[in-house]
C-alpha cells in the first residue's frame, strides 16, 4: 500500500457531523466526569512520581515509589489480609443474602415485608455508627460479650484481640451489607416469569429443584454484580478497622488494610507521594480482580 490509497476526503467530513452532535449531548457529563474522576486520578499519578522530604524538599523520582511499594512487606501484609477477608467473608455474606432473598421470594414466609425491611435496615445505618455500636458490643468487660460471659458463665474469646479482630470486622461488614445484596438478588428474582415455575411444577419439580435449576441460573448476572461490588468493597476495607483501632490499637496496625496504610502514610507520615503510589497499585489490582470475576461469570453464562 502506498500513499495513493488514502480514503476519499468527503466521506470523512460527512462522518464527522453527527459525532459532534453526540458529543454536545454528553458534554455536561464528560465535563463532570473529567473533573471529578479523571483529574484526581491523573493528579495522583503525577504525585506518585515525586518524593517529598521534610528536609530536602521535593524531587522527581520516576517510578521509584512503585518499586518501593511492590517490595514493601507492610503493603503485602495488608493486601494478604484483605484477600483473606475477601475469600472468607464475601461467600458467607452473599450466601446469607441469597438464602434471605430466596426465602422472601418463595412466598412461604409470613410477614415477608417486615422480614425484608429488617434485613435491609442495617444498610441504612452509616458504617461509622454501625462500627462504633459493634465496638461497644464487643467489649469483654461491659459490652454485650462481657454480659454474655457473665450471664452464661462462658469465656468467649475477646472479639478485639489480635486473633479475632478480622473475624469481628467480617461480622460487622456482613451485618451491614447482607440487606443490600439481598435486595439486588430479590429484585432479580422478581423479574423471572412465573410461568417457568408453573411449567416446572407441572413437570414435577419441587421447590429446591426450582431454586437450583431456574432461580439461581436466572439471577447469575445479579450474583456476578454483587460479587464484583463485594470484591471492590473488601479491597477498600477502611472504615471498620480504622474506627475500631482506638479500641484495639495493638491488634489493628497502621497498615492493617491497604487503604489504612495509604491513609496513614499520607496523614501521619506526610508521605503523600508514596501513599499515592500505594493507592494506584491497589486500584489496579482491584480492577484486574474485579474484571476476572466478571469474565468468569460471563463465561459460565455463555457455556450454559
Amino acid at each position: 500500500m502506498t500513499a495513493t490509497s488514502a480514503p476519499p476526503v468527503p466521506a470523512t467530513v460527512r462522518r464527522d457531523r453527527p459525532n459532534w452532535t453526540g458529543w454536545a449531548f454528553v458534554a455536561p457529563f464528560m465535563a463532570v466526569f473529567a473533573l471529578v474522576l479523571v483529574a484526581p486520578v491523573i493528579y495522583a499519578i503525577y504525585l506518585s512520581l515525586f518524593r517529598e522530604q521534610l528536609i530536602g524538599g521535593t524531587s522527581f523520582v520516576g517510578l521509584a515509589n512503585y518499586a518501593e511499594a511492590l517490595a514493601d512487606p507492610k503493603f503485602w501484609d495488608a493486601f494478604g489480609r484483605v484477600l483473606l477477608f475477601l475469600v472468607v467473608q464475601v461467600p458467607i455474606m452473599l450466601g446469607i443474602a441469597l438464602v434471605a432473598a430466596l426465602a422472601i421470594d418463595s412466598g412461604r414466609l409470613r410477614l415477608a415485608a417486615f422480614f425484608r425491611i429488617s434485613v435491609f435496615l442495617p444498610y441504612a445505618v452509616p458504617a461509622v455508627v454501625a462500627t462504633l455500636m459493634w465496638g461497644f458490643m464487643y467489649g469483654t468487660r461491659f459490652g454485650l460479650v462481657g454480659n454474655i460471659n457473665d450471664f452464661l458463665g462462658l469465656d468467649l474469646p475477646a472479639p478485639l484481640s489480635a486473633n479475632w479482630v478480622l473475624a469481628s470486622i467480617g461480622n460487622i461488614v456482613t451485618w451491614e451489607f447482607v440487606g443490600y445484596n439481598m435486595l439486588i438478588f430479590y429484585a432479580a428474582l422478581r423479574v423471572i416469569p412465573t410461568d417457568l415455575y408453573e411449567a416446572a411444577a407441572l413437570d414435577g419439580a419441587g421447590a429446591f429443584r426450582i431454586v437450583r435449576h431456574i432461580k439461581i441460573p436466572a439471577i447469575r448476572g445479579a450474583i456476578v454484580i454483587a460479587a464484583i461490588f463485594s470484591v471492590i468493597g473488601s479491597f477498600q476495607l477502611f472504615n471498620e478497622p480504622n474506627i475500631l483501632k482506638p479500641l484495639a490499637p495493638n491488634a489493628i496496625s497502621t497498615y492493617y488494610t491497604p487503604n489504612m496504610y495509604a491513609y496513614n502514610l499520607s496523614f501521619a507520615g506526610q508521605q503523600f507521594d508514596y501513599s499515592a503510589a500505594v493507592a494506584i497499585i491497589m486500584g489496579l489490582i482491584t480492577v484486574v480482580i474485579a474484571y476476572a470475576v466478571q469474565l468468569s461469570g460471563a463465561r459460565k453464562e455463555r457455556t450454559r
Binding site: 484526581p40 493528579y43 495522583a44 517529598e52 472504615n239 474506627i243 487503604n259 491513609y263 503523600f272
Partner: peptide, 17 residues
C-alpha cells in the same frame, strides 16, 4: 479518625508537591 477514604482522595488532590 472517623474521616473516611473520601477525605483521602480530596486531601490528596489538595496538596501539590
Amino acid at each position: 479518625g472517623l474521616a473516611t477514604a473520601a477525605a483521602l482522595t480530596a486531601t490528596l488532590a489538595a496538596c501539590a508537591p
